[in-house]
Amino acid sequence: MYDKKQQIIEVGMKLFAERGFHSTSIQEIADHCGISKGAFYLHFKSKKDFTVAIYRYYYDTVKNRLDEVGARTDLSPWQKFELEIEVFFEEFMRKKEFIIMHFQEHFSIHKELEVLVFKMRIEAHAWYEKNLLEIYGDEVKPFIVDGIILIEGLVDSYMKVILFDGVDLDLKEFSKFLARRADDVIRGMLNKQEKPQLNKAMFKPLYQINDRNELREKVNTILVDMKERLPNLVLEKTKFEDLDKTLDFLLKEVKKEEPEKIIFQGMLSNFHGVSELEDSRQQIADLLEIKLIS
């Protein structure tokens, strides 16, 4: 991301948190950045698009750091879990302005932002599921959804205490404490052979999409996100041009009443090996219920 664009986003996050989304004008954001209003619109088409950029910036920052921990081979699954909690809360503390805006503002969310938030929630659940399976094995599968909901509740509660009550915690020690409490939750269910209360079938908006238009909208938004991120990746010119054309083609295909799944399956293979877009590629495959090929 360009330094100026990042600066505008961070200033906007801070002003939204201090004054509120509706009370902060584009002109005020531009003034605080030392740029003209016209220069702001060189980076963002509208205030709503700017809001989407803020969410994407926060999401990408957290995800990139978590991916770095997840890729380490010198840590056990449990050590990764502890460190990922620590990293998550570190970024939470650095981006408190964003969290304040998220909790305090109730502005109307347009479709692109709604789908991005949906994507963030899916990936959060996938992250929890991956960690729980790596630590506890197949035994935890019946309790995956209950475990995720309970652990998310712990995390969200501590986030609010830190945010709104100004509590200052030692993040390294706190992360270990929270990981142990998550362990208490999971082992309690396993040891007592509790009957699971939740399963994925109960969460159709999260795990299943039955409406055809909604499905196309979600795939379209992921493709748009991939196209916007593509110029920031380190790629050879020919590779960049090939992927850019692929995305343009898929964006046309997804607008059809019945997008051809086999076309998506074939063309998504062009992105194999582009690690920064692998999650997006997998999300489209999951939504369309197709198997990725190399």
Results as ranks from 00 to 15, higher is better:
residue 3 D to L: 01
residue 9 I to F: 01
residue 15 L to F: 02
residue 16 F to N: 06
residue 18 E to Y: 00
residue 19 R to F: 01
residue 21 F to S: 05
residue 25 S to C: 01
residue 25 S to Y: 01
residue 27 Q to T: 03
residue 30 A to T: 06
residue 32 H to V: 02
residue 38 G to P: 00
residue 42 L to W: 11
residue 43 H to Q: 07
residue 48 K to Q: 12
residue 48 K to V: 08
residue 48 K to L: 07
residue 49 D to F: 08
residue 54 I to N: 04
residue 57 Y to S: 15
residue 60 D to F: 03
residue 63 K to D: 15
residue 65 R to S: 15
residue 66 L to N: 12
residue 67 D to N: 12
residue 67 D to M: 07
residue 68 E to W: 12
residue 69 V to Y: 12
residue 69 V to S: 14
residue 69 V to D: 10
residue 69 V to Q: 13
residue 70 G to E: 14
residue 75 L to F: 05
residue 76 S to C: 04
residue 79 Q to L: 00
residue 83 L to Q: 14
residue 84 E to F: 01
residue 85 I to A: 14
residue 87 V to Q: 08
residue 89 F to P: 04
residue 92 F to D: 11
residue 93 M to F: 11
residue 94 R to Q: 11
residue 97 E to W: 02
residue 103 F to M: 13
residue 105 E to P: 03
residue 111 K to G: 10
residue 114 E to Q: 12
residue 119 K to Y: 12
residue 126 A to D: 06
residue 127 W to E: 09
residue 128 Y to M: 06
residue 132 L to T: 06
residue 136 Y to T: 10
residue 137 G to S: 02
residue 139 E to D: 14
residue 142 P to Q: 07
residue 144 I to V: 09
residue 145 V to T: 15
residue 145 V to Y: 08
residue 147 G to Q: 01
residue 148 I to H: 07
residue 149 I to N: 15
residue 155 V to T: 15
residue 160 K to W: 04
residue 163 L to N: 06
residue 164 F to A: 00
residue 166 G to Q: 01
residue 167 V to R: 13
residue 168 D to E: 09
residue 169 L to V: 09
residue 170 D to V: 02
residue 171 L to W: 10
residue 176 K to Q: 15
residue 176 K to R: 15
residue 179 A to Q: 03
residue 185 V to A: 06
residue 191 N to I: 00
residue 196 P to A: 02
residue 198 L to P: 01
residue 202 M to A: 09
residue 206 L to E: 11
residue 206 L to G: 12
residue 207 Y to I: 05
residue 208 Q to A: 13
residue 210 N to S: 09
residue 213 N to F: 04
residue 215 L to A: 04
residue 223 L to C: 08
residue 224 V to Y: 13
residue 226 M to W: 03
residue 230 L to N: 13
residue 231 P to W: 11
residue 235 L to Q: 10
residue 236 E to W: 03
residue 241 E to D: 11
residue 241 E to I: 01
residue 242 D to L: 07
residue 247 L to T: 10
residue 249 F to M: 12
residue 251 L to I: 03
residue 256 K to T: 08
residue 259 P to I: 01
residue 264 F to A: 10
residue 265 Q to A: 09
residue 266 G to I: 00
residue 270 N to W: 09
residue 272 H to Y: 13
residue 273 G to R: 11
residue 274 V to D: 06
residue 275 S to P: 01
residue 276 E to C: 05
residue 287 L to R: 10
residue 293 I to E: 11
